[in-house]
Design a protein around this nucleic acid. Structure first.
Lengths: 227, 227
DNA sequence: CCTACCGATCGGTAGG
DNA sequence: CCTACCGATCGGTAGG
């Protein structure tokens, strides 16, 4: 009874308790914020005692950093695909934008965690911004500048500022969706509402970036080169 | 020495200590969040002891509500002007948008406080949204629908979703400005950067709402009626 | 508006 | 992974 089976039913005991701790910490930090969540809250949901949690993570701040690192690790998973889509040339801006939205829509806790860090630790997280956001922003901003020179993109766009705004819009809209959804008519399911809301976000981002094709206001199928 | 002068130097003692408490609580709640700020933090900045603070506000939660009510009172000050600008007819959308941005840019703590409430208490603040945001959103959404019928505004715009996104964008961009500003080149002053950033926000909002005037891409001065 | 004080809870440690 | 326990700090009260 006390001897663990080789790799079976109770194999999950050694180091993936740490994963359960990370999961619950992520949920609770995202929902209530770092300071409002106690270690007892987290350990309670995992089913262990507080000192046991501190065996896996030596302090509450260590746990916060681990939660953030897991988030950034996932981000680094999709980043290469994003960058490739951006550099592969014309019309791929849609793919970059859609993939970025998908990353945060996939798990809105990601949006909430980042927004909270932006609010709570504006200066402390700048190394993380520098490492994980800067390269992406730079590449997209360069893409925009080339698109402007080629005449595909609106010349009035402020590339860096535009990227910052769209990024914040994606994150904040998904992070606050629960609160904002109350304004919508209740005939829709939440999933439908989120889908419609996301579509409008993409429309705003694209319409304010691409130059209008002449006479394309009514017939989206008539593709013509600019000028 | 102990008798207070009629209405002079020390007149400010009775009930405007409460105002100093409100001011400091607003600053600290906006910067660090409700749970991360202790009553001792606040009273310390005011220059009184914690029990003295609790004489003016019977509990920490009462103080939180008072901070929020002061913010909403200021909002109610500008709301009538906003609504008037929206209903007065053509082309006044700019005024509504600019006034809304000005409200939050004027004191970015307002943006931070609201964003925190949206994150921390998504369900609890819905009565406040219903009372203070719903009427404004409804009127602007109606304005958009009329503009669409008149052919001035893009027919693809989802009115309610558009208003929600632009509102969130205004609030979140100003709330997180400190953290995002680090991405910008450092040759600019912060004020210049904020100005440029705000201009791009307005451009995004307007470009994605108004229908393009034929041939207006290069000459912004040639105003023509749609179709 | 103060001093003195309360029980509860916090993050974290000892020691096994 | 646990029980037992620590000092510090929390929001709030008593009583003046």
């Amino acid at each position: 009874m006390s001897t663990p089976r080789s790799t079976d039913a109770r194999t999950n005991t050694r180091a993936d308790v740490a994963q359960k701790i990370l999961d619950q910490a992520t949920r609770l930090f995202a929902a209530h914020g770092f300071d409002a969540v106690s270690l007892a809250d987290i350990s309670g949901r995992v089913g262990i005692r507080k000192p046991s949690l501190l065996y896996h993570f030596r302090s509450k701040d260590t746990l916060r950093q681990a939660v953030l690192e897991e988030l950034l690790a996932h981000w680094n998973d999709v980043l290469p695909k994003l960058l490739m889509a951006a550099t592969t040339g014309t019309g791929q801006f849609d793919a970059v934008l859609a993939k970025t939205v998908a990353f945060f829509a996939d798990d809105r806790d990601r949006a909430r965690l980042i927004l909270r860090e932006l609010l709570d630790r504006p200066t402390e997280i700048q190394p993380l911004i520098e490492a994980h956001v800067r390269p992406w922003v730079t590449i997209v901003a360069d893409y925009i500048r080339r698109g402007q020179e080629a005449g595909r993109l609106r010349f009035e766009v402020d590339p860096l500022s535009y990227v910052a705004h769209v990024t914040i819009l994606v994150i904040a809209s998904l992070a606050t969706f629960d609160a904002v959804a109350a304004l919508a008519p209740s005939t829709e399911t939440r999933k439908q509402l989120l889908e419609r809301h996301t579509q409008e976000l993409l429309r705003i981002a694209k319409t304010s970036l691409f130059r209008p094709r002449p006479g394309a206001s009514r017939e989206p199928s008539s593709i013509q080169p600019p000028e």
